[in-house]
Computed example of a mutant assay.
Amino acid sequence: MPTIPLLICDDSNMARKQLMRSLPPEWDVSVTTATNGREGIEAIRQGLGSVVLLDLTMPDMDGYETLAAIRAESLQASVIIVSGDVQEEAVRRTLELGALAFLKKPADPDQLQQTLQRLGLLGESANQWGAPALSVDQTPISFNDAFRETVNVAMGRAAALLARVLGVFVQLPVPNVNMLEVGELHMALSDAQANDRLTAVCQGYIGGGIAGEALLLFHDSEIADMAQLMKIDDADYSDMEMLLDLSSILIGACLSGIAEELDVAFSQSHPQVLGLHSGIEELIRLNERRWKKTLAVEISYSLEGHNIHFDLLMLFTEDSVELLSRKLAHLMS
């Protein structure tokens, strides 16, 4: 049986390597990689992707747009989605667009093999000795790439929970991961507040020597719409209580996903509303005394069909970075 051209389309170097290692060892494939949908479509046009393992959350051209382009051009490709966005609606939409199956990240090797077998994509083993060993790209995985992929999986789980609670589809971006001087963070938050009135909810967390604070920023103009979406008609249930409950859901789910990936257990403080400008200034001043740098993860959630979006900032202490690096090195090995 001829070698199968397999395309792995994902913007994360870590995710691509994890998938390479998860492929059935006897599967005779030649692997091409792409970092976004545009590169992926070009590879399929060139006959390099009769089977495609496709991510959804990518810059430039995401997985949904890629599926739509495959259909529009009538390209011959058997597509399996491998994504951290595990919302039920995400699964439904991708299958409707022509994907043959949906696997959650990180892909379980047994589940991947069973899916390929079920879809008739494995064919017969190359020979009794098995297929030739695939050479995995030796490009080193950067800390930012590895942590971004870890957060991507966690953020997808949080979105799935939020989607169930609110009955909406949550649109997810590629998360931003940066080491920032606390002064830079201060400036970024000040700029954000200059454009709109914000309310911030803060929640601290610590576990396995890793510590930080999560900051959820809501635009005040959207809070009433949020309350309506949550179908709150209890006069005793204030907007602030709603924001605290919503924050607990989002921050808790995101931390839980990160904890599971890194094999740590986080304990969380009670969320508190920091209020408007003065509250965030106070948080920055406090952190400026404790640490000079912060590992900042920014996730911008928006709700499809509603003018509602909010930003989750996860700020890890400078001391946490070394421990996070060690945990990620274990994941990458």
Rank of each mutant, 00 (worst) to 15 (best):
M1K: 10
T3P: 02
I4F: 02
L6E: 03
I8V: 12
D10H: 09
N13K: 12
M14F: 14
A15Y: 04
M20R: 11
S22G: 02
P24Q: 06
P25Q: 10
E26D: 15
N36P: 09
G37K: 08
E39T: 03
R45S: 10
Q46A: 15
G47L: 07
G49W: 05
G49Q: 08
D55K: 07
L56G: 05
D60E: 15
M61F: 04
M61E: 09
T66Q: 05
A68S: 15
I70Y: 03
R71G: 05
A72G: 08
L75V: 09
L75K: 06
Q76G: 08
V79G: 05
G84S: 03
G84D: 02
E88K: 12
A90H: 00
V91H: 08
V91D: 01
R92Y: 00
L95G: 10
A101N: 07
L103G: 04
P109N: 08
D110C: 03
Q114P: 00
Q117R: 14
E124L: 13
A126L: 09
W129C: 01
A131V: 06
A131M: 07
V136T: 12
V136A: 03
Q138G: 10
Q138K: 14
I141C: 10
F147P: 06
T150K: 01
V151G: 04
V153G: 02
A154Q: 04
A154E: 04
G156Q: 10
R157Y: 05
L161Q: 12
L162Y: 06
L162I: 12
R164L: 10
L166C: 14
G167H: 04
V170F: 01
Q171N: 12
Q171Y: 01
P173G: 07
V174L: 11
V177C: 04
V177M: 02
E184M: 13
E184W: 01
H186Q: 14
A188L: 14
L189R: 10
S190Q: 14
D196A: 15
R197T: 15
C202E: 13
G204F: 01
Y205N: 03
G209T: 08
G212D: 04
A214P: 06
A214G: 15
L215G: 07
L215H: 07
L217S: 12
D220V: 13
S221C: 03
A224T: 13
A224P: 01
K231Q: 14
D233V: 11
A235V: 14
D236F: 11
M242I: 15
S247T: 13
I251C: 03
I251F: 00
G252M: 04
G252L: 10
A259L: 06
A265K: 12
P271K: 03
V273A: 15
L274M: 14
L276H: 13
I280A: 10
E281Y: 00
E282N: 14
R285L: 13
R290M: 09
K293M: 11
K293W: 05
E298R: 13
E298N: 11
I299M: 13
I299P: 00
Y301R: 04
H306W: 12
I308D: 06
H309L: 05
F310H: 12
D311I: 15
L313H: 14
F316G: 03
T317N: 13
E318L: 05
E318Q: 15
S320K: 08
L323D: 03
L323N: 09
L324Y: 00
R326M: 11
L331R: 15
L331H: 00
S333M: 08
